[in-house]
């Protein structure tokens, strides 16, 4: 089942990924370039020491003062930690002086001969317990022999190993630190987002009387402000909708009042209400709607009304005249 990745997980993965890649590069760099540079510097130092020593030992080789030569080699190299040995071979290749206790290792005889015209020669040796670098310097252009010094790679390996583990621990410590920092950072980022999500959930349930409080000026603050504006707009729309519905409901109600079967007098056109009273049609409509009436007389009615009024007025005048005449006679 695929587990959804949270922002925190993504941030942590990104941080760890970057640290691991950077750390791996540093470690590779340490194991290759740094080691090579250390070795190169060690070799240069070895060549310099060997050259100085070669200039110093030449006379002793010429004069065959081998005991004095051996003593000098031991005195000169006694404090040099990286130099495992020094030995002098004469022109025939025989070892005439060396810094080993007692006899010298037979395998060192005849190794690393400097080709003619070269200032020095370097070869790597694999001994029982360690790797060595043998530097050979010709004495008086090789006419009287060669001086060899053996450099131990132990210090280089130790230094490289120390740097390796230092980097490894540094990466580990940085990863822990990054884990803590990114956890806090992700909480800072996700907390308002979670709050916003909760508010949005409430809004989705129809509660628009909401306000998401965020005072930050960052993207999340901007999102919160936009959300608040959206909620406010949504609330306004909702209010207007409710008002409209209310108005429509009122109108509908009114429409329902004037609709249906209305009992009306076929002769006088009065309408009977729910209580059984006969109402003038204009009064009934005025009461059950917003309609208002202005009273006038249409031309047809006017003709009829005028004739009737004339007849009535004529009859009334005749009646009054008749009444006056009777009183006069009396």
């Amino acid at each position: 089942m695929k587990i959804p990745l949270t922002i925190r997980s993504k941030l942590l993965m990104a941080a760890f990924g970057i640290l691991l890649v950077a750390g791996a590069l540093l470690l590779v760099l340490n194991l290759t370039t740094v080691h090579d540079k250390f070795e190169e510097r060690l070799q240069l130092r070895g060549v310099t020491i060997a050259r100085l020593l070669a200039a110093e030992v030449a006379n002793s080789v010429l004069t065959e003062q081998y005991a004095a030569l051996e003593l000098m080699l031991k005195e000169r190299l006694g404090d040099e930690q990286d130099i495992e040995y020094a030995l002098v071979a004469n022109k025939t290749g025989a070892i005439v002086a060396h810094t080993f206790q007692g006899d010298f290792p037979a395998d060192l005889k005849g190794i690393n001969l400097v080709p003619a015209g070269q200032d020095y020669a370097i070869i790597r040796l694999a001994a029982e317990k360690e790797s060595l670098i043998d530097i050979a310097i010709p004495l008086l252009k090789g006419e009287i022999g060669q001086l060899h010094i053996g450099l131990s790679e132990t210090s280089i390996k130790k230094q490289t190993s120390e740097i390796f583990w230092m980097i490894a621990w540094l990466i580990f410590a940085t990863m822990i630190f990054a884990g803590v920092v990114f956890t806090i950072l992700s909480r800072i980022i996700t907390k308002p987002l979670l709050g916003l999500a909760k508010t949005a959930e409430q809004a989705s349930q129809g509660n628009f009387n909401l306000y998401f409080d965020s005072s930050s000026d960052d993207e999340i603050g901007h999102l919160a402000r936009t959300f608040n504006t959206m909620i406010a707009a949504r609330m306004q729309v909702e209010k207007e909708r409710e008002k409209l519905i209310e108005e429509l409901q009122t109108a509908l109600k009114e429409i329902k009042t004037l609709s249906g079967l209305l009992p009306i007098c076929a002769w006088c056109k009065k309408i009977r209400d729910d209580k059984g009273y006969w109402n003038m049609i204009d009064v009934y409509i005025a009461e059950h709607s917003d309609a208002e009436f202005s009273h006038g007389i249409c031309p047809d009615c006017l003709k009829q009304v005028s004739l009737e009024t004339y007849n009535r007025l004529t009859l009334e005048q005749k009646s009054r005249d008749d009444h006056s005449a009777s009183e006069g006679k009396s």
Binding site: D36, A94, P105, A106, R124
Partner: peptide, 27 residues
């Protein structure tokens, strides 16, 4: 990384530091 660390760019000549021999004595 460990393999890379173990690799050496230059070949090494195997020698023994334990088999010993006496140096040429002074005349």
């Amino acid at each position: 990384l460990q393999v890379v660390a173990g690799c050496s760019p230059n070949p090494e000549q195997k020698i023994s530091l334990e088999k010993r021999e006496a140096a040429v004595p002074e005349k």
